[in-house]
Write a protein that binds this DNA or RNA. Structure first.
Lengths: 153, 153
DNA sequence: CCTGAAATGACACGGAT
DNA sequence: ATCCGTGTCATTTCAGG
């Protein structure tokens, strides 16, 4: 991975619909060279997938919530996590440091959906000692973009 | 937006590199019809952009951290937020309910990077009364996929 | 929404630096 | 080893119906 690869990654993170000819002019390479590099980045797993970014509001998931979980230290968490990440409401599930054990990022229709998810799904799992949900009033930034070039400063 | 649009959205969220002919066979439409629908979804802003998903580890940002901020209620938050979201370390910035005011999701090189970001960037902003950083030990799920079809149940 | 044609892009190969 | 040009095929895109 050299500077050109990193530049390609950054460009594609912003707009993956650009053609190889456009990418080529931006990084100063031919279409074939860009093709070679992008294919290698895919093969190496550095580029994991191609996706679209969807407006959550348009598909009826306007509510973002974070839910903290504290689990029973006497029990293992593997089954719990396995069940949690099956739910499409759960976008992220992180095992965290701090007073709680897990942080869930949820995308939901509304507060009623949040309530039912907590009572019907989370609390049904067992082994959970504490649930602390918090709602996003607004989101100033939400991206997955991580500059590949900034790793070099 | 009908059921076919929702199906297209879900397919493209998983793999946006599929051709219109493949999409067509999956939803039972011709290439042109798929083209028409996808273009409309783009024009309407429902499909916001095309992106690649990058392995954070490969570009030197292996550490995920969540940072809670409590701000001075006497001051406005607009400038603070505006400065925060400029930083490429900040993937997300949510205005939250609960004891804290903001939740930041950060992607960093290592704990040294986290420390410098807190001391040199966050605390320099002013108007911040409390900073509580927490680190992700592991991440069991991290996606942006929100099923468009599930909005219908 | 479909068919069909034209333009564009992707991709593999061979050769050169 | 990477890059470039060419050729071929797939894909996109836009008519017209």
């Amino acid at each position: 991975m050299d500077a050109i690869d990193r530049k390609l990654i950054d460009i594609l993170q912003e707009d993956a619909s650009l053609s190889y000819s456009v990418l080529g002019t931006r990084v100063g390479l031919s279409v074939s060279a860009v093709n070679d590099r992008v294919r290698k980045l895919r093969d190496q797993g550095i580029i994991k997938s191609y996706q679209i970014a969807v407006d959550p509001h348009a598909i009826g998931r306007a509510l973002t919530a974070m839910v903290w979980l504290r689990t029973d230290p006497a029990k293992g968490n593997k089954k719990l996590v396995k069940s949690l990440i099956k739910a499409d409401e759960v976008l992220e599930c992180h095992h965290m440091t701090g007073r709680f054990d897990f942080l869930l990022k949820l995308r939901l229709r509304d507060t009623a959906h949040l309530e039912s998810f907590i009572t019907d799904t989370i609390k049904e799992l067992g082994g959970i000692l504490e649930v602390l949900p918090e709602i996003a009033l607004s989101t100033a930034k939400e991206t997955a973009f991580v500059p590949a070039q900034a790793g070099q400063d």
